[in-house]
Nucleic acid binder design. Sequence first.
RNA 1: GCCGACGUAGCUCAGCUGGUAGAGCAGCUGAUUCGUAAUCAGCAGGUCGCCGGUUCGAUUCCGGCCGUCGGCUCCA
Length: 644
Amino acid sequence: MSEIQVRLPDGRALALPSGGGALVAAEKIGPGLARAALAGRVDGRLVDLRAPLEDGVALEIVTAKDGAAGEVIRHSAEHLMADAVKRLFPSAQVDVGRSDHSEKFQYDFLVERAFTPEDLARIEAEMAKIVAEKSVFQREVVAREEARRIFAGLGEELKLSRLDDIPEGESITLFRHGSFVDLCRGPHVQRVDQIGAFKLIETGGAYWRGDERNPMLQRIYGVAFATKRELDEWVERQEEAKRRDHRRLGAELDLFHLDAISPGSPFYRPKGMLLYNGLVGYIRSLYPKYGYQEVMTPQLFRADLYKTSGHYQNFADDMFRMEGDEGEELFVKPMNCPGHCHLFKAAKYSYRDLPLRFAEFSRLHRNERSGTLTGLSRVRSMAQDDAHIYCEPDQVSDEVNRFFEMMNEVYRDLGIGGVQVSVSTRPDPFLGEPADWDRAEATLIEAVKAAGYPCGIKPKEGAFYGPKVECDFFDVLGRRWTLATIQIDTAMPSSFGLRYVGRDGHEHQPAMLHRAVLGSLERFISIYLEHTAGDFPLWLAPVQVGVLPITERHVEYAAKVTEALRARGIRADLDARNEKLGFKIREAETQKIPVMVVVGDQEEASGTVTPRRRHGSKESAAIPLDAFAAGLAEEIATRRMAGA
RNA sequence: GCCGACGUAGCUCAGCUGGUAGAGCAGCUGAUUCGUAAUCAGCAGGUCGCCGGUUCGAUUCCGGCCGUCGGCUCCA
């Protein structure tokens, strides 16, 4: 009888009988650990407790304290949910769950009718019953024919199809708990009652195998945690996200609204326009420093432009089409790049002119499918802080670097930190030559590393015309958003026949880059609103100062104060309403006005103001109006962040 | 576009099984003249998303459409 050795985190070697799994190892270490064990970890990968270990591997035992515990618990909760659904809806067919269990779990079912919220509650209750049964997860490796026989017997046709996906030669594992059996790689917890707390969140349709030509299955989403406390924290985060919802804040702060009269097209109200223009004006102010030239190209183009660029072939249905004279086909522009290529072509450029950086803030319109519209995050009418760079091929790295420099300056001024950079590779279908793609991807990966970022890879996430660098940031609630992007275009320079005269006097094809730092202004505003909860930095706030007279007899002086601040370009608003000071302060706070100044008898007599910062303390001293205004103007001009 | 839920005053929402609607906030008017997160009172405000059907009678039941939200797909 042979033995194997595994190494433990403390360096010790542990002997196990051949075929032993992490659970056997845990039992050898101690009964407490064996009870608490949820999974094993070998070389950073989670393995099922019952899966046989290879000789010589380094093994860790994962318990509820481990950061990865949640993944195992959620994955196990999927089986628990599928079990509950099968008990309540015996005719339901089970598809598969999620491959990534880092946040939610999910399972898809083929059922006669969609699940209702009441069904969800019943399923959740059934899950609790199953947990009380404390059944044990069992892992078994079976022959393909055996697996076929089992699932055919259960009438699980979707499973049979999934079974066919498993390549010949790969082992087929099943997991059972109680009377429920599923095709699954694991890992799973030992007993169902190790799933400490769970909640079903919502249902939704989901296409079979993610293809919209296939029938739609019913998906149920849930969350599960080791403890009730973690679930409570999750619920609290959801509530906070709801409080910060940009649609809610957009209305409360009087920034914008959406209306059925033009679906997916924001109405910017005066304060929203101050925010929008604040962002555009800020980016514009950086353009000289980073070598961009702002341009403006038409809103309507003949179809030919988009036939040349490839958008006609790829996105015709998603563009707004119009007819000109004599049936001429026109499109409202959905992006600036083809126009910029046209602009490049309209003049003769040499290597001395490169890199050429065309920037444009035009409104763009895309006929997004109705089901995809969401607040400002996904709209039909938008603008980007868009630019296209034409350069010599060997200048691409420098341009990527310059882009990072600008991005860092912008994010610093906006209080956005912790960017994660990755390269998105060739999708399917794509334009251009695979060899060009490979080169472009390599160039980007190298440029990202050269700029000092660890470079993630997003496989097949590139644009149809070229690979992208995407900069993701995590907001205060830990949600991931892609903001800045720079992309190589492997297609348009050649489809437009772009040429510049090189040092050698011959014509060459320029490299072309697409880039945006904020991305879509609409989407950026939605993300930024939720990230800041409306607490914009002073320089960007639509109303920077609220002037609050204590009684009506101070209104006249307060108006003077307001004028003095406005004279320095500060956006100051006077709250002359006949209300108590506490009311006005509360109002200014809920309106997220960064600075309030209180004026009463004392201030009027001494020509001072008493400032109060947003979310600030009660204590503050009166300052001469001039000194206050000058200091504030300076703070705005330097875009100092609060607390800095 | 597909699946589901929802659509009542400017906003947030109540309205049991069908008998033409109610609150808080906001608004307006008045009183109060107030020192760091909501002063009091009164008034006004709604074709119950739109169209059609069932019914003596529809905000309520049914169908269609529009929109919003969540999910899928898509995201140049």
